[in-house]
Design a protein around this nucleic acid. Structure first.
Lengths: 337, 337
DNA sequence: GAAGTGTGTCGAAGCGCTTCGACTGCTTCG
DNA sequence: CGAAGCAGTCGAAGCGCTTCGACACACTTC
């Protein structure tokens, strides 16, 4: 293993000079710099991470807490994680992967041990146990998701309320009056995950303003669950002509079942999905949808974190504006018989 | 920030004693141990990771390289990553997330800097650039996936050859003679990803033994691509009655298209899928399938790595035996007209 | 020409931990 | 009863780096 000292000797300078060449924190003459860089290359030197962390009390690592559960938005989570990792690298950081399993203890451990300089937390619940800890430590952190109380926190998220409203509006403009909302699995609502509730709120309040009727049904993914859910919906509200789906694994079943029942999309019923772009495009009917900007969220989270670590940036809630893309699954409501 | 020295002072012992309490590397009297543990708790002490790494030249971190691409098996990758992270924690390790982006350099960086003690590499290509590096370093590593040459490497993977053979056999036993294989996107084959090619080899060689005809077609996911692929298949081989699908995003389109064409599953054609359990169960027809044991793979990879780090364990190729679960998508071949 | 101002380099201290050898009392055994 | 062995503890060295102050030297500035 090559050390700084060996590089220094090889280049005929002192260790501190090599360090300054590496960090750029003091000016170094061009000739010395070149000599040192040459030695670094020749010897294949890599600074020891532990020593660096100890001496500088900076680990250059960002911790990322991902949910343990895989009952929703798996590809989204993955995309965020990848975006976080790659963005972090461009700023010189590595990413430590924590699963939610340890819960709040993970926050303590990472903060206390100096393992990471900062933290990104996903799958935030409205009253998340981790929040007090994050507020308490001096460590910068960014949430991907929005808790009930955001004071003293930095959050990045899609504006789910606006997303719900946008979907509703789109259907309203098309003349639909009776809307069914197919949501995530009941468990998602039970643990008060912010995005699910906010979407619903946005949807409902806009419906109230526009005088539309909204029926919300959580739904496990898959055909059987969707079939049951759909039956109940048409049972309660036979006049339903608009659907908003926020559950990737219910999208395709819904389309298949509608087809099976002889309800044409978009002639008889319109469907608007809230899902990753890929799902919307690959579905059997190209779906009018609001995409979840996963990459953007990951990137923004890291950038805010880096800003904080550099002393710039302050607590802030960043809500990304939803964008609705009209595709083939929505159209004018059938005129009443 | 609380240090070892402060704990020592608080407990009235020397720093080394506290260290030995923590590591258990020397015997400590029960009374001293208790006093120290008490102090640790009272002060909320967490050992500094950097200092530890420096002094012991062990970071207690495992690096996990995941693919940057998201053109296949995203949920599987995610499941593996989560399994790796949770298993690693039970052995006292944390996980550093690396994307394939940096390529081989990431291996050099992590190895050289002592950032991680060991490495798990996913998305292995048959002739992977990273292999020479992994063989060269003293660092233990485990591949999830199988390259062409495994000498000096430890690998964990599903036995894809056997998986292919198993699917083929199942269809053969049911009397199908003309089999179509719907594969991953062409790009996956082009970069010579081991699993895709091995599956195909296993399938084909068993087909040869049993005298069946096999037609392989790579396929991007989604309806349009699947429709084109399916048309070509029935065009070339109108007598096709068995399908093997290795591409999650082609599964549902295939089923829908078959239905649309009036071909009943499993009465007219049988479908066997190679996909995550969830996809098989949630599909519109419950699919006969071979599951990808993602969790198992992640767990095993970590356990092998930990064994190596402990000086136990040696290079070895672990192939998990595939299991085929019969569900509702496969049945006897229709007797020839 | 003395004082001030940069610029480039070095030496040494120290980050918080692990670990080795040494020491102290015991017990145990020939 | 002295030597040997062991459990339990301590002190000190050192892991590889960053960073602070000091210093040498070359310039400007009055």
């Amino acid at each position: 293993m090559v050390t700084l000292a060996e590089v220094a000797q090889h280049a005929g300078v002192s260790a501190s000079t090599v360090s300054y060449v590496l960090s750029g924190k003091r000016s170094i003459s061009a000739s010395t710099r070149q000599r040192v860089e040459q030695s670094i290359r020749e010897l294949g030197y890599h600074p020891n991470a532990g020593a660096r962390a100890l001496a500088s009390s900076r680990s250059n690592i960002i911790a990322l807490m991902i949910p343990l559960r895989t009952d929703m938005y798996v590809p989204v989570m993955m995309e965020i994680a990848i975006a976080v990792a790659t963005t972090a690298r461009t700023h010189g950081y590595d990413v430590l992967l924590l699963t939610g399993e340890e819960g709040p203890d993970a926050v303590r451990r990472v903060t206390g041990s100096g393992l990471a300089d900062a933290m990104i937390v996903m799958d935030v619940e409205l009253q998340d146990e981790r929040l007090p800890l994050l507020r308490g430590t001096g460590q910068p952190s960014v949430l991907i998701g929005l808790p009930a109380d955001t004071t003293g926190l930095t959050c990045v998220d899609l504006d789910w309320g606006a997303t719900g409203a946008l979907c509703l509006e789109h259907l309203a403009v098309l003349g639909h009056r009776d809307i069914a909302v197919i949501g995530e699995a009941p468990a998602v609502y039970e643990r008060h995950t912010g995005f699910a509730e906010r979407t619903l709120d946005g949807l409902r309040s806009r419906a109230r303003e526009l005088g539309l009727k909204v029926l919300h049904r959580p739904c496990e993914g898959g055909y059987d669950a969707m079939a049951a859910t759909l039956a109940r919906i048409f049972d309660e509200r036979p006049g339903t002509t608009g659907f908003v789906v926020q559950n990737e694994s219910a999208v395709e079943p819904l389309l298949a079942l509608l087809r099976q029942q002889g309800r044409a999309v978009p002639e008889d019923v319109s469907v608007v999905a809230i899902c990753p772009e890929q799902v919307a495009v690959q579905a059997s009917v190209r779906l009018t949808s609001v995409a979840v900007p996963a990459q953007e969220m990951g990137r923004r989270a890291v950038e805010h974190l880096v800003a904080k670590l550099d002393g710039r940036g302050r607590d802030e809630v960043v809500l990304l504006a939803p964008e609705l893309t009209v595709r083939a699954s929505s159209g004018p409501a059938p005129s009443a018989p």
